[in-house]
Design a binder for these strands. Structure first.
Length: 268
DNA sequence: AACCCTGTTATCGA
DNA sequence: TTCGATAACAGGGT
């Protein structure tokens, strides 16, 4: 489920425990979500440390413990984060990491095991954090930078390019469809086939969808309004809220894609 | 019961 | 090198 704004939402779920001290860790070290992670060092270093910082970038989260502990969380397809009190916490089969602080309990739950926990110890942030792509909501993420991404991958269908986390961190399946629909660009159109007007529209809609998602979803996971494609994309017989014509579903780059033929045209 | 999925990664081949 | 297609991962929802 989690894309840009959902990840921000889940990051905020852990923030109430900032400043608290870790008493105990529960984890299943053989678990897939710990692939490549030194769980022994994670357990040893986290215990007794103070939860000091919470950040999100794209689909990745970074939580700092003490000065030198950096816990990375990726939610995959179905990951969730919770913060509960010890009285209300009930262990769940798919709770892969449970951090008992005083007085809160932080939980990483993932029924599908596509998520991932990373761990790094040292004074500096880990490489997998500093090497992430640009923040699409920053003022310095300009149309020129967006154009450069299109140039670099001019033969890739627009839908597939938008899903590339190196270029567009945080964009996932529903956001990519929403952006293309708002910009009236067919998902299979390639970067090199886009007109100047289409490129500008895509850039504007990319920024707009990121802002709208953060505003509506990040604080309390509100339902987006009916005016978004989001509300219609999975319904059989869904109707485009802009044209009132039927929506269509196709596969692009292996991902199910919903679009409005009346608005976005036929395959190029 | 069969099929689908808001994600990532390895592999193969053009 | 680059990119697309495909499969794999694992469980829950429809």
């Amino acid at each position: 489920m989690p894309e840009l704004a959902e990840v921000e939402y889940y990051k905020r779920r852990w923030e109430p425990a900032l400043g608290q001290t870790v008493q105990k860790i529960d984890l299943h070290e053989k678990n897939r979500v710990f692939r490549g992670t030194d769980t022994e060092d994670l357990t040893k270093s986290l215990t007794g440390s103070q939860f000091s910082e919470a950040r999100a970038h794209g689909k990745q989260m970074l939580f700092r413990f003490g000065e030198e502990g950096w816990l990375g969380v990726h939610l995959g397809m179905a990951g969730k984060l919770f913060c509960q009190s010890p009285e209300t916490f009930e262990p769940h089969k798919h709770d892969h990491l449970v951090i008992h602080l005083e007085p809160s309990v932080l939980i990483f739950r993932d029924t599908r095991y596509f998520g991932r926990i990373l761990w790094h110890r040292g004074p500096e942030e880990p490489d997998w954090w500093t090497q992430a792509g640009r923040n699409l909501l920053d003022d310095d993420y300009t149309e020129e930078i967006f154009r450069e991404s299109l140039r670099r991958r001019s033969k890739t269908p627009a839908k597939s390019l938008l899903l590339d986390q190196k270029h567009f961190p945080g964009i996932g399946n529903w956001m990519a469809d929403e952006i293309l629909w708002r910009a009236a660009v067919h998902p299979e159109k390639r970067g090199g086939q886009l007109s100047e007007k289409e490129i500008s529209a895509l850039y504007q809609c990319l920024r707009e969808v990121c802002r709208d998602a953060m505003r509506v979803i990040a604080p309390d996971w509100s339902d987006p309004p009916q005016s978004w494609l989001f509300r219609h994309r999975w319904k059989d017989g869904g109707i485009c809220p802009k044209t009132e014509k039927p929506l269509a579903r196709i596969q692009v780059g292996g991902r199910t894609t919903c679009y409005s033929p009346a608005r976005q045209g036929k395959a190029p």
